[in-house]
Design a protein around this nucleic acid. Sequence first.
DNA 1: CCTGCTACCTGATGGC
DNA 2: TGCCATCAGGTAGCAG
Length: 276
Amino acid sequence: MPEVEAVVRTLRTLVQGQRIRRVRVFHPIAVKPQKASRLADLATNRLIQRVDRKGKYVLLALDRGLLTVHFRLDGQLIWFLDRRELLERANVKENGVHVDVALEFAKGVLGFADRRHFGRVYAWDCLEDSPGLTSLGVDALSKNFVVPRFLELVAASARPLKDFLLDQSRVAGLGNIYSCESLWHARLDPRRRAKSLKPEEARRLHKAIVSVLARALECCLHPAPDFHDSQWWFQGLEKILRAYGREGEPCRRCGAAIQRIEQGGRSTYFCRKCQK
DNA sequence: CCTGCTACCTGATGGC
DNA sequence: TGCCATCAGGTAGCAG
């Protein structure tokens, strides 16, 4: 989510207040199960009034309706200077870039790309129509993410901490990386049940989440996202990671080897010695 | 309601 | 070199 927040800030400067002149759907799978015509009909000739974020979703609020963009694992945005550049480079063999959906503006074109085709661009009449959005819990980067609320959520869940943090309907915005990192910083075992935490431990976890996300956001903002370069997409984040992806390497706190286990079908990285 | 499992896709990497 | 298995930053949909 820090990545999404950074993307939103750059995107705002590019498209907020701009009118969508034309919508191109090169790969309809990127709007599935909606239809390409749905996106085109709803977005063509609409003004983008605001660019916002909820959890890991990007929201483009239009003068009528809204678009949501979700990058899932590998989605990204690409900026083309004009329609000519888009058509020259999009989805061509030689020296081309993969583009699934493009929004054309008077000056510039925004491309959404995801070779893996997990990411989505959706069109909605109103925010309430999007099930993904309405089910989101409190946003972990927002002012509403306060200790008392977090203690309530923790006390109400019997799930292992790692699964609890990944559940977007409780706290929105933490993915696999930042869940692992937050638990490492809070020195908590990812396998523990959420409701087993003492208030002091839950407060520690809250503090860890806030600081991990703040640091990651700083990292994502410097240098700021650059949609012109399709190769560039958040490199250098590994530097701040303490547990994620470090299986077998020494824990930066106690020196014991970082372990990798499976939880809910995903990898969890943690230190057995100092996360209790 | 809750939980756990699978499907959805493509590409990179490593072992044999 | 080729082939196969495994892994990847996420979520939706389904069964129990």
